[in-house]
């Protein structure tokens, strides 16, 4: 390509990029940097709803408050082998379209949401990417919750220095 033409193309590309609304990017991408998987803002929102369904806010903080949907994404992005990332993404897409009584997950009542999750865990979905996805989200949500600073300092304190060991202690 002629140098001059290349510059002109470049300039056009830049200009068209500038014409895009500034919020466009935010709608398309997740709010944390991910290297391996591409997650849209909408999917991120759905995951936030999902983890909140798994561990809801009660008189203590829930999964969404603790940002566990982002923890799930971080773990999937960094720690899953490529093949399982694929399964996760595939399962997520199926989950997005999944309805219960004609209603999508995000629009359902809490009880309907839980019923849908229970359904996905049924044996008939055993080999499916959908179940793989849900199991992975659940696993990482639980891990992120139980090993969060909040739970480990406020609710079930982690003792860094126990100072002693007893082999038989009556449970409280």
């Amino acid at each position: 390509m002629e140098r001059r033409t290349a510059i002109r193309h470049m300039a056009l590309l830049c200009a068209s990029a500038m014409l895009l609304p500034s919020c466009f990017n935010h709608q398309q991408e997740a709010s944390i940097p991910l290297q391996q998987i591409a997650i849209s803002a909408k999917q991120e929102q759905l995951l936030a709803e999902l983890v909140e369904t798994i561990i809801p806010k009660t008189d203590t903080l829930g999964a969404k408050d603790l940002g566990l949907h982002l923890f799930v994404l971080k773990m999937v992005d960094d720690c899953l082998p490529q093949k399982e990332q694929q399964q996760f993404m595939d399962g997520l897409q199926t989950f997005e379209d999944k309805t219960i009584g004609g209603t999508k997950f995000a629009e359902s009542s809490n009880q309907h949401k839980i019923n849908l999750l229970k359904e996905i865990m049924e044996p008939r979905y055993k080999e499916s990417n959908l179940q793989f996805f849900l199991k992975e989200v659940r696993k990482q949500t639980l891990k992120g919750y139980q090993q969060s600073e909040y739970v480990m300092t406020k609710l079930r304190p982690y003792i860094l220095v126990p100072g002693h060991f007893s082999g038989s202690v009556k449970r409280a």
């Binding site: 773990m75 960094d78 899953l80 600073e149």
Partner: peptide, 17 residues
């Protein structure tokens, strides 16, 4: 030595990389 579990980026797991 004095880090708590939540202070490890991947909660002590190895990354795929």
């Amino acid at each position: 030595t004095n880090l708590s579990p939540w202070e490890f980026e991947h909660r002590n797991e190895l990354t795929e990389e």
